[in-house]
Structure formats: C-alpha cells, structure tokens
Design a protein around this nucleic acid. Structure first.
Lengths: 147, 147
DNA sequence: ACTAAAAACCACTAAAAACCACTTTTTTCC
DNA sequence: GGAAAAAAGTGGTTTTTAGTGGTTTTTAGT
C-alpha cells in the first residue's frame, strides 16, 4: 500500500527517479512492472502496479461507448495508459504525451493513494491544495466520515 | 491490445510512420493488414486490425437502414473504410479523403483504444482534451467507477 | 507512346535506449 | 559524534534503432 508524498525531479530527458522506498514497494507489488495513465478529473497521472491496472482496464473497456461521458473516460484512461519499466538506476522514462497531459516540468510530487500513486506537477499540486472546497452533492459515505 | 498515445507526423505525401511498438502489435494481431475508417462522433479516424474490422463491418451492415442515425453510421463507417498495408519502412499512405475528413495536417496523435486505435490531428485532440465535461446521463457503471 | 502519379526502394538524420561514471546523502560501526 | 562504507540520485556518453526525406521504377491513364 502506498501512502505519503515525495518531491521528485524529472531530468531533461523526461526521466524520473522513483524514491527508494516506493521502488521497494513496487518491486513487492508487481516486480517493478507498472502502468501510468491519465486521471480524468484532474491534470495528473496515475501510477498502477500491473495487476491493479489489468482489473481497471477491464472495467473501463466494458463501459458503453456510445455514451459521451463513458467515451471520454475510455479515451483518456486507455488512450494514455503506458506500461513502463524501471531502468538500471530505478528511473522511468515518461512519454512526451503524458508529460504534456499533466503539464509536467522539472519539479513533481508523487503522492501515495493506497493501491496506486498520483504524479503531479508541483505547481498544479499546490494550486489544487489551495483551491476552494468543491461544490455539489456530498455522498452519505462522506457525510458519515469522522477524521 | 493497444493502449497509450504517440506523437506522429505525416509527411508531404501523406505517409504516416507507425511507431515501432504499435507496428509490432499490429504484426501480431493481423500481419500488418489494417482497415482505416471514419469515427462517426468525432473528427478522427479509426484503425482496425483486419479481423476486428470484419466483425464490425457485419454489425454495421446489419443495422436497419431506414433509421437516419443508423444510415449516417453506415455511410460514414462503410464509406470511408480503406484497407491499407505498411510499406517497407513501416508507413501507411493515407488517402486524401480520409485526411480531409479528420482534418489531418503534419502533427498527429495516435491513441490506443484496446481493440483499435484512433488517429487525430494534434490540434483537434488537444481541443477535445481541454473540452468541458460532456452533459447528459451518467451511466451507473460510470458513477460506480473508482480510478 | 508519352505523361503523370503512385508505389517501391534506398540512404541519411535524429532520437531513444542502454550504459557508465560521478556526486551526494544516509546508515552503520568504531 | 565522526569517519567510512554503502546506497541512492544525477548527469553525461555511446550505440543502436527508428524515423524522415528523396530518388527511381513501375503502373495506369490519356
């Protein structure tokens, strides 16, 4: 399980060093075989261990694709999904299209989210943290929460 | 299965180099024999392995063609469908009518969508990605999703 | 038969992948 | 607490492969 956040840096070739602790967790979870894709609701990337991804991929592929909302999710999630492996120094090379989608530059934040990780541009992460509370319905499960 | 997206360029003759990884996947799936046609809901092209296309073609042909929506789908999908082969350098030559339909210029994006690929003009892809969320019904299967 | 366009072929350039070396930080042992 | 060793992170170099552009040959149409 992944928790906690890390500052990471992307070099000029788009290589990203995975922090050693997360690297170990990934080695346990999936032998370092991961899939990175787009988040549909925010401009950030999702990092999945291979098996986690396989389950999600099936669910997404099964959505009714004449529905616009479902088609949007399919296009983005399947369309950006890229299997990646760590190089000999524990780095991954992020494809240009993923860098573009999440507006990644040098300074990034890698955020643990239990079964996956999120990868944000530091600037977008900070402005998301500063954002006002979202409007709209609050599900019962959220109202019932007690931190 | 096709996932992930690639920047590709079309040269002045309308030739399009298929990225090596996708080329390999296509070689497995269909020996490089593909069919390209129009997408009915967006101005982009669909790239199918031969067998996938054969199945789809039957379904489309079987639609009730007194219905306007069905007739539209038939005209576009069957009408633009073109079998193509890769040249010795792994490129396909896109017919002018397909280029026109999808407003393809030099810079394109090739997007994996599991059993097929989508080919977009980079400009149209970017404006689609930036578009607001679609209105309308959200299927239960979508609401229940958790990325 | 001649012209024009399209297909096949060939050569070069550029980008990606693998490799290697160095710097900095952390940990352990004295 | 300090020094040494190990691990982690960073950057650059080389090699290979993929992508790009141009040239020639064939085919088809007039």
């Amino acid at each position: 399980m992944f928790t906690g956040s890390n500052n990471v840096t992307m070099d000029s070739k788009g290589r990203l060093a995975i922090p050693a602790k997360i690297r170990d967790a990934l080695a346990d979870a999936c032998g370092g075989r991961i899939v990175i894709t787009a988040h549909t609701e925010d401009r950030c990337l999702l990092v999945y261990p291979e098996q986690e991804w396989a389950e999600l991929q099936e669910k997404i592929a099964a959505l009714p694709n004449m529905n616009p909302k479902a088609r949007r999710i399919q296009r983005l999630v399947l369309g950006y999904a890229t299997p990646l492996e760590l190089d000999s120094n524990g780095r991954v090379l992020l494809p240009q299209t993923l860098r573009d989608y999440a507006q990644l530059e040098k300074k990034l934040i890698l955020v643990g989210q239990n079964n996956k990780l999120e990868l944000w541009s530091e600037a977008l992460w900070n402005s998301w943290v500063d954002e006002d509370e979202p409007e709209g319905d609050i599900p019962d499960a959220v109202s019932a929460l007690s931190l």
